[in-house]
Design a protein around this nucleic acid. Structure first.
Length: 304
RNA sequence: GCCGCGGUAGCUCAGUGGUAGAGCACUUCUCUGAAAAAGAAGGGGUCGUCGGUUCAAUUCUGACCCGCGGCA
């Protein structure tokens, strides 16, 4: 959990932040609120940033936007790596633009890390990924990675998840480039966010997840993945995207049959929604709402 | 009806004469340029039912019940 320091700064520009698990109806809520309060929407979704990934990511359709401008969709090529740092840069630019237009910025998304980058203002160390270095480190055993980090940065080593190779490698990378220990997470709160969370019972959410999955399969989600692959997005990349792209890619490679693809995917989406909630459910700043009207009231009461 | 095989965690299955494990699921959690990613911890079973042998049975044995396959 991040330490907020002085907390919300009253003078900072106000923004709305909508969070909630996948399939909970964030996009619809965002559009309704945007229409009501003259807002514009910035997506905070690590997969919807990619072009050509529409059905599988549940990207909002043109007609569903109802004329409300949406940003940070389709800003990246799936063949190239994207990252929170890039997201933060682009998204903050958009927030500024919207504020300058005297409109209300609404951050809406399911990627907690991305949301946090903006709404909490976490500062990401300015060390771009060095994929050559990472590849080299990848050859080391997990324990060796941990020992290496311990030697060069005992402070970080103490706090890090010592079994998590990806984190270990990143930490080593930062020390390697900056020649300094990894700094404590710093925060620069630029905005005054009002957090609205969509509350939904597990059974109902699972039902929605299944219905949405069936619908998207009918809409041609499998073709979408095939098209991506044909246009040069490797199976490996699709695997890393996770969920729909991972399971459909395995199916298209004949590694599993349709039924296994369907069942595993359904389970994984449910697990994902769970992980999203793990991130948010203990965040005291979030007001959990069940109906649109409650969100509207919240915004009014907070003098937006 | 007979013969064979099986009945162990929610699921698929290991295993042992001294009251049990794995993978997946589930629960809880972590998150410093891959985050739909990558990781961590935890709960859970009167081992089909009722008898017998034994100091001791989930393990051996008998009957029965249930499932699957074969023969009639």
């Amino acid at each position: 959990m991040l330490q907020m320091g002085t907390g919300r700064k009253k003078d900072n520009p106000k923004i709305i932040v909508i969070v909630g698990p996948t399939a909970s109806g964030k996009s619809d809520l965002a559009v309704s609120l945007a229409k009501k309060f003259d807002g514009e929407i910035i997506s905070a979704d690590s997969r919807q940033v990619y072009k050509g990934m529409d059905i599988g990511t549940g990207k909002i359709k043109e007609e569903e936007m109802k004329g409300v401008p949406h940003y940070l969709l389709d800003v990246a090529d799936p063949k190239e790596k994207f990252s929170v740092a890039k997201y933060k840069l682009l998204a903050e630019e958009k927030v500024e633009e919207i504020i300058n237009k005297k409109k209300l910025p609404i951050i809406c998304g399911g990627t907690a890390f991305y949301v946090s980058a903006i709404a909490d203002g976490i500062i990401i160390p300015e060390v771009p990924p060095d994929w050559k270095l990472r590849k080299k480190l990848e050859e080391l055993k997990t324990e060796e990675l941990f020992n290496k980090l311990k030697k060069i940065d005992i402070g970080r080593a103490k706090k890090i998840d010592e079994k998590n190779r990806r984190r270990l490698i990143r930490a080593i990378e930062i020390v390697d480039k900056t020649k300094k220990p990894v700094q404590k997470t710093r925060i620069e709160q630029k905005y005054n966010p009002l957090f609205i969370g969509i509350q939904i019972e597990k059974e109902k959410l699972h039902e929605r997840i299944k219905r949405r999955l069936d619908q998207r399969l009918e809409e041609g989600m499998i073709d979408e993945v095939m098209t991506l692959n044909k246009s040069g997005v490797s199976w490996k990349i699709l695997e890393d995207f996770g969920l729909e792209y991972r399971w459909i890619a395995r199916y298209l490679q004949n590694k599993i049959d349709y039924n296994e693809m369907y069942e595993s995917l359904l389970t994984d989406i449910k697990k994902f929604s769970k992980r999203q909630m793990t991130w948010w459910k203990n965040d005291k700043r979030i007001s959990w709402i069940k109906k649109y009207k409650e969100a509207e009231k919240l915004i009014k009461n907070n003098a937006f």
